[in-house]
Design a protein around this nucleic acid. Structure first.
Lengths: 255, 255
DNA sequence: CAACGGGGTCGTACGGCGTACGTCGACCGC
DNA sequence: GCGGTCGACGTACGCCGTACGACCCCGTTG
């Protein structure tokens, strides 16, 4: 029910797979099992049914193969997930670097949001000390390109990226949970809100917590409408970019 | 290895416990088991050893009681976690509302960071559609107080809070993972970085990804030093607050 | 062409988890 | 003193990840 633990995939093992240290043997070169086929099957399962549905038994099944055969190509589930993550990074667009830095960062934020929408399981699998696969490195390099040459120090460039991507991840997580819950409970967020309103009013009277009840109601109605997570994402992103522009302006002025 | 799934604790059941709908019977009033004792024991375990170590068997053990006895007071693990979360909120300071809005938000950010440092398991257990326990409501009301009366709409007040708390959570998660990994691997972040440097240089040459290799190295050294997650937290927080001040200024000007 | 060796495959089994279910004992109200 | 009720808990089920060892098939070698 929580974030992936033993997310500590053995980095060395994962890296060996990711950077293709081992060339395929003549035997396995046929149409048999392979890391690629396993990873693709695993991603399909996780995309469609979430990280909890991704079990080693399930992967074997999907490939018409015994559960333990999977372990021939992948040392364990944690390492499989690590490879899945890097593979997903590899499928991201590397939009051309055009426009000013703000437009570029905005574009990157939206690309990453789309990534999380396509692969919601990544929200629960990623760690902050990621396995440095080739696609993550390429992604990092590409994204740094958006903030290079605007007068920031290297440390600041990294911090800016961390900030923006962190915001995207927060927002994506919120949006993803709304979708999950709407499917699990067969209720839209708005319906859920309304069905709980009477209960809330029992305890959360305007007397006891006036501000919370007023603002909570307003925010709840917003969620009921078409916009909710989307608004939080856009609002937050614009605030973050505004904040970054203050630093950029400072650096430009002192040059 | 991931974020709590079936985090869908049955809200009604959780709420019933949280708002103490059921008064203690004369029988159970003695020194026997109780929701409070269970929750306290569970929080102690999770604080000390993480959410993975928190099993129902373990909770029973800690209380000198059979595993299934716990289910007399709590409908399931998900609901137990929900109550743990609200309890933790209840232990937060409600710092007096003083200073300007920026100082107040900064204070709130630091209070929430401290909460996550004391209870790192919350980073993996919280959801975005939380169970509306009494302490969460009180916390929300208190935190709204920091941004009331500065000219924002209700929706914006909620969005500002969501943004700041989202940033705190991102940063706290990063910091927490660093701590976890340093314990698990018996290596500091700096040592880990250095031990992987040769490997990285093999693939990530300055030729292939000049920006990534330069900035990554700089950021890596930063992590090796005393500051890393703390810097990311403070840098991001100041940027977020700068961004918010732009909106506040706009609203003040148009009034 | 026969024998061998090794690698891909997979069945079984173990120790963990959450928890459904049914029983038992002790206490409280009468 | 007694009946009913409720807290406590033992057992068991179906999941999970994966260690271990057996099998089988195929490419290589003598």
């Amino acid at each position: 029910m929580a974030i992936e633990r033993k997310a500590t995939a053995d980095p060395a093992r994962s890296l060996a797979i990711l950077w293709r240290t081992r060339e395929p043997t003549s035997r396995s070169a046929g149409q048999g099992l392979s890391v690629d086929r396993i990873v693709r099957a695993a991603i399909d399962i996780a995309d469609a049914e979430g990280l909890d549905a991704l079990t080693m038994r399930r992967v074997g099944e999907a490939l018409g193969v015994g559960t333990m055969s999977v372990y021939t190509y992948v040392p364990g589930k944690a390492e499989l997930v690590a490879v899945m993550i890097d593979t997903a990074y590899g499928e991201m667009p590397r939009s051309a670097v055009e426009g000013d830095w703000r437009a570029r960062l905005e574009r990157i934020a939206h690309d990453n949001l789309a990534l999380y929408q396509r692969h919601p399981w990544m929200l629960r699998a990623e760690t902050t000390r990621p396995v440095l696969g080739p696609n993550l490195v390429a992604k990092y390099d590409h994204e740094l390109g958006a903030v290079a040459d605007i007068g920031l120090t290297d440390i600041e460039m990294d911090a800016v990226l961390t900030l923006v991507l962190g915001h995207v991840k927060s927002s994506a997580r919120a949006a993803s949970e709304v979708v999950d819950l709407e499917r699990e409970t067969d209720m839209t967020d708005g319906q859920w809100w309304q069905s709980h309103a009477p209960w809330l009013e029992t305890f959360l009277t305007a007397d006891s917590y006036p501000t919370a009840s007023r603002v909570g109601t307003a925010a709840g109605q917003q969620h009921g409408g078409a916009y909710g997570p989307e608004y939080a994402f856009e609002f937050g992103l614009q605030r973050v970019l505004d904040g970054i522009s203050v630093v950029v302006a400072e650096r430009a002025a002192s040059r």
